[in-house]
């Protein structure tokens, strides 16, 4: 007994799940506050509406999520461009080989495969804050942090700003890219054969997930001016 498989077009918005955006009113009030003197928009982004949640006990390491990410969004198979990261943790886990092989994670360790996903950070959003061109913005619908490719110059500062190394660089376009939750229908979740990924309402995981890199303090004209009144 089978039912026809439901087909969703890649990147369509029609299946987008509506989220309650409780912070909208408060953010609007801040944005309207007149403390910002220069042309930069406020760096405070609305919280995202959704989030990818991973279950490392279920991940089987097939990497079909990485492939779905770039095949559905970019028309090519390219894990280096994927906005979900499994391959880099596949062999030895997120912390590499320093604890030894079998004392570590990954295929050569205790077999635990860790999927790295964008945490869709709350304010201050490291990648957006660091971008000298204000090219990382909250998507109009999902409020996911997305790269506005018209504004992105390909400077790669955001790649060093994300503590979780979740920004990728598209060499063909010479632009940065990041997880934009596939406009509300994440292809990675859809492609996972082990229910190891879920798409849930946003919550703040920035303190729960270990960082991957020391970030470089980067400021730009005007940004600190927007921060000072609050800090």
């Amino acid at each position: 007994m089978t039912k026809p498989i439901e087909i969703h077009a890649c990147g369509t918005r029609r299946d987008f799940l509506k989220y309650s955006l409780g912070t909208t009113a408060a953010l609007s009030a801040i944005a309207g506050w007149a403390g910002v003197q220069d042309a930069s928009p406020p760096v405070i982004l609305e919280n995202a509406g959704g989030l990818l949640i991973t279950d490392t006990t279920r991940c089987v390491g097939c990497r079909r999520c990485e492939l779905a990410c770039t095949e559905c969004n970019d028309g090519r198979s390219q894990p280096a461009l994927s906005r979900i990261k499994v391959g880099r943790n596949y062999n030895f886990g997120p912390r590499g080989q320093r604890a030894g092989m079998h004392r570590s994670m990954g295929e050569f360790g205790n077999f635990r495969i860790v999927q790295d996903t964008c945490l869709q950070c709350p304010h201050p959003v490291p990648c957006a804050t660091a971008c000298p061109h204000d090219a990382i913005i909250a998507d109009g619908m999902t409020k996911a942090r997305v790269v506005d490719s018209d504004k992105c110059t390909g400077c790669r500062i955001c790649l060093r700003a994300c503590p979780w190394e979740m920004i990728v660089f598209d060499r063909e376009a010479s632009k940065a890219s990041k997880c934009f939750l596939c406009n509300g229908k994440p292809q990675c979740v859809d492609a996972c054969p082990a229910q190891a990924l879920r798409f849930l309402a946003w919550r703040d995981l920035t303190r729960a997930v270990p960082v991957r890199q020391a970030t470089v303090p980067l400021t730009k004209d005007g940004v600190s001016a927007t921060c000072r009144p609050c800090h």
Partner: peptide, 13 residues
């Protein structure tokens, strides 16, 4: 790098 796919994205999916 990438492996390129000839079919359009929706047809491939």
């Amino acid at each position: 790098g990438a492996v390129r796919i000839a079919a359009d994205k929706k047809a491939w999916r």
